[in-house]
């Protein structure tokens, strides 16, 4: 099965489209967290999702649309059984070598004080991270996370 342990049944869905202005980093994570709050997750789980979304959105702003402003497309799906799927997509410059880019400390922009830890955060704070990219076309980041559903006796 492709998305190990996650249902493909979607019970709720949200789409958000924002221009790549840095003020939208905070907007994006706040909106996604508000949407995910319907699952009554633990505070730490919500914090993880906010951080992962912040990383993906910041990458669109800092890297994908480095010299321009473009749209960032965010889709959040609530999955049956208490998981979430978050997709962050851009039509920016793309990544030539995704494997290299995902390594801890890898950055193409050290002068901007980038830590090269964005993908590492997404990987560790979420359960699944999938990155697809085409140079010149854009990048698609998909993340899954299982939430504990404090409200239920699971």
């Amino acid at each position: 099965m492709r998305n190990k342990g996650f249902s493909s049944v979607v019970t709720n869905e949200m789409k958000l489209k924002l221009p790549s202005c840095s003020v939208n980093e905070g907007v994006a994570r706040a909106v996604v967290a508000a949407f995910c709050a319907q699952l009554d997750p633990a505070a730490s789980e919500l914090a993880d999702i906010k951080c992962a979304v912040s990383e993906a959105v910041t990458n669109c702003i800092v890297h994908a649309y480095r010299d321009s402003v473009g749209w960032i497309y965010i889709t959040v799906k609530i999955l049956e059984g208490g998981g979430v799927r978050v997709e962050v997509r851009d039509r920016g410059c793309g990544i030539a070598d995704v494997r290299a880019a995902r390594r801890p400390l890898f950055t193409t922009d050290p002068s901007g004080e980038r830590s090269g830890m964005g993908f590492t955060v997404m990987e560790n704070f979420m359960d699944i991270l999938r990155v697809r990219s085409k140079p010149g076309k854009g990048t698609n980041v998909v993340m899954f996370k299982r939430l504990s559903r404090r409200g239920e006796n699971t």
Partner: peptide, 13 residues
Amino acid sequence: GFMDSSGLGLIMG
């Protein structure tokens, strides 16, 4: 209350 990897860059810098 919130910090992402940009904060790591800020601290290390």
